[in-house]
Computed example of a mutant assay.
Amino acid sequence: MSRNAVFAPPPDARAYRLRTARGEFAVVDSPVAHGVEPRGTVLMLPGFTGSKEDFTLLHEPLGARGYRTVAVDGRGQYESDGPEHDEAVYAQAELARDVLAQVAALGTRVHLVGHSLGGQIARAAVLFDHAPFESVTLMSSGPARISESQQQRVKLLRDALDTMTMAEVWEVIQAMGPPEEVGGPAVGPGDPQRLRNRWLGTRPAQLFATGRQLCSEPDRVAELADVPLPCHVLSGTYDDTWPVPLLDEMARRLDARRTVIPGAEHSPNTDQPLPTARALADFWDGVSAQRRPARP
């Protein structure tokens, strides 16, 4: 598949603005494949500097397994509106309430998937109210703040945004070869112009606020472990943002299903989409089987 095609939604998918009680959010909504029995709905939250397009390669294989998939740009990300300079609206609690509003607008309980920063927002939403969710998957998203090396790189990005425009920072990122967690603009899916457009569409205040969150997030694993909700920790075999042994330990603390995708790093959804989709659907199928009453 071409890099251009990765930004294009699947043929049956709809790109639209989801109206919620907290505003409108840009989504790509992909249905269950024709002739396949529906098994559930999935809401997918992207990471820092990412967007809904990061999940493009998951839509079709998950649809073939019976799952409607809805990928969303969070407030101030790419095609979702948000203020340029007011960081308060991007506080984690506000972003978590946005997720709850998105689920309410979809009108059904969902399996929640959060990649990286999206995983920590997903956790916050579940801790507010777990009732709208069937399960939660934390994809390449760790128990607390990001690694020291990634904190330094996020700080470099924030410093650059203090003195340069988004367009100027884009050029610097291209020249430097960005770090993994700040790598969405340069190494994510899509051709350079589309990636540049995504970067320019993201609000600076969103990057400032969420970058600080990544560098200061407390360990809330014990809180999540107390929530009666099936949990899945999925990652690649290498991750510099949250080292894989840390993710292994988090899964043990959560009594969660643990999946490691061979050949993937921080973004299994784009590095190895087919095995990632298979692992996700297998987990959700198991959740459904546990919920289904036994036959007499």
Rank of each mutant, 00 (worst) to 15 (best):
M1I: 10
A8N: 11
A15T: 11
R19D: 15
R19C: 12
D29F: 08
S30K: 07
P31N: 06
V32Y: 08
A33H: 05
G35P: 05
E37V: 08
P38N: 02
M44T: 04
M44R: 04
L45T: 03
G47K: 11
F48D: 11
T49K: 13
E53S: 11
D54I: 02
H59Q: 08
R65A: 11
R65D: 01
Y67N: 00
R68S: 01
V72I: 11
G76N: 10
Q77N: 08
Q77T: 04
E79Q: 15
E79F: 13
H85E: 10
A88V: 06
A93M: 05
D98K: 06
D98V: 04
V99D: 04
V99A: 08
A101V: 04
G107S: 05
G114A: 09
G114R: 11
L117F: 11
G118S: 04
G119A: 06
G119E: 08
A125H: 08
V126F: 06
D129M: 12
P132A: 10
P132M: 09
L138S: 11
M139S: 13
A144K: 13
A144F: 05
S147E: 11
S149A: 15
Q150V: 02
V154R: 03
K155G: 00
L157I: 01
A160F: 00
T165M: 05
A167G: 12
G177H: 12
P178I: 06
E180S: 14
E181Y: 13
P185E: 10
V187W: 10
P189H: 04
P189Q: 06
G190H: 08
R194I: 08
A205S: 10
L214Q: 07
R220E: 05
A225P: 00
P228C: 01
P230Q: 02
C231Q: 14
L234S: 10
T237F: 02
Y238E: 15
Y238I: 10
D239K: 07
D240H: 14
T241E: 06
W242Y: 15
L246Q: 14
R253N: 02
L254R: 07
D255L: 01
R257Y: 00
V260N: 01
A264G: 03
E265F: 09
S267K: 07
S288F: 00
